[in-house]
Amino acid sequence: MALGVFSIEWVEASRPVFMMFWSTFVGGNILVGAMIIHVFLGMQSLYLRNTLQMSSYDVIQFASALLIMPLLIPHAWGIIGGVALLNYKPTFPLMLQLFWIDTPLEGLRQVLLVVVAWVHACIGLFTWLKLKVWWPRIAPFTYPLAVAIPVLALLGFAEGGNSALALLQAGTVLPIQPADPAVQLDGVTFSENFAFLTTVKWGMLYGYCILVAAVMIARFIRLRAIIGMVEIHYQNDDGTSKSIRTKAGASLLEIAIMNDIPHANLCRGRGRCGTCRVLVENSSGTISQPSDLEQATLTRLNCPSGVRLACQLKPKVGSIHIKPLMEPDVETKNLHDTTTGEEVLAQ
C-alpha cells in the first residue's frame, strides 16, 4: 500500500507478490486458524485479568484486540465469500473505487482495521522483542519503520482515493458487479448470494459480541468471590517507605500501576522479564507458590527464595511488606547486564 503514494499501477503490479502465499488454500487456512487461536488466547487473558485499570499501553492493547474482530470479519468474509460466491476479482483500483466512492463506510472500516491491527501487532511484537539482547541496538531503526509503514500505506490509500475521485469526475467508473444481478452462478442468483453473505457476516459479528459479553460476565462472576482489602508496604532502596491499602485480587504490579507507584515492568506483566521482581519481607497470610512460568523466570535470574515477580503475585487479604529490587526506569540494556540485578539481590 505504501507504494500507493506513487501510483496505483505499481500497487496493482505488486499485489500478486504480496498476496501469493495467503491466497493459497493452505496459507489461507493457516491465517484463519492462527487468528482464531489468537482470539481465544486473548479472551482467556481477559477472563483472567483481575482489574481493567491498567497502564495505557495495555489499555490500547486490549481495546485494539477487541476491535480487530468486528473490523476484520466483514473484510475477511467479504474476500473469502466474495471471491468464492460472487466471483469478484479484487484488484486494487476496483477496491479503491469501492472504498472511496461506492461504499465509503467500508473504506473507513478498512482504514480503522489497518490502524488497529497494526497497533495491536506492534505492541505485541515490541513487548516481546524488547527483552532481546540485540534489541537496543536495532530499536532506533525499527521504531521509525513501525510508524513509516502504516503511515505511508494510509497516505497511499488516501492518495489513491483522491485519484479515484478524480477518475470519477472524469467519468470513468469501473464495473463493480455484474451488469445484471439476476445472472446465475452455480444456479444461485447474485442477489441471493449477496443476501446470504450479509446474513453470515452479521451472524459472525453478533457471535463475537456474545462471546465477549460472555467472557466479561464469567469474569465478573469469578471476581465477585474476591473481597477484602490488602495493605501493601513498600520499602524502597533509599530508606523511604510507602503504604497503600486497596482491594485485594489484583497482582502487585497492577496495584502499583493503579496507585501510580512507579514499578519496573519491562515485559508489562507477561512474567518473562523479571524486572518487576520484589523481595517479600513478610506477609500476614500465606502467599501462593510461584507458577511454572514465574518459577522459570526466577530460576533463570538466580533469585534467592523470597523473591517473587510482582506481576504474578496476587497478595491475599491482609498485609504484605515488599521491597522492589529493580529501579522503575530499568531499560533493556540493564536487563542483560546482570550485575545490577545481582547486586541488589546480594544485599
Binding site: P104, L105, L108, V115, P144, V147, V151, L154, A158, G161
Partner: peptide
C-alpha cells in the same frame, strides 16, 4: 462525510505515529 472521517483517522494516525516515535 465518511471520506472526511476517513481522512481524519488517517491524519490522527500519522500524528499519533509521530508522537509514538
Amino acid at each position: 462525510t465518511l471520506q472526511a472521517i476517513t481522512y481524519l483517522v488517517i491524519f490522527l494516525v500519522v500524528g499519533a505515529g509521530f508522537e509514538w516515535l
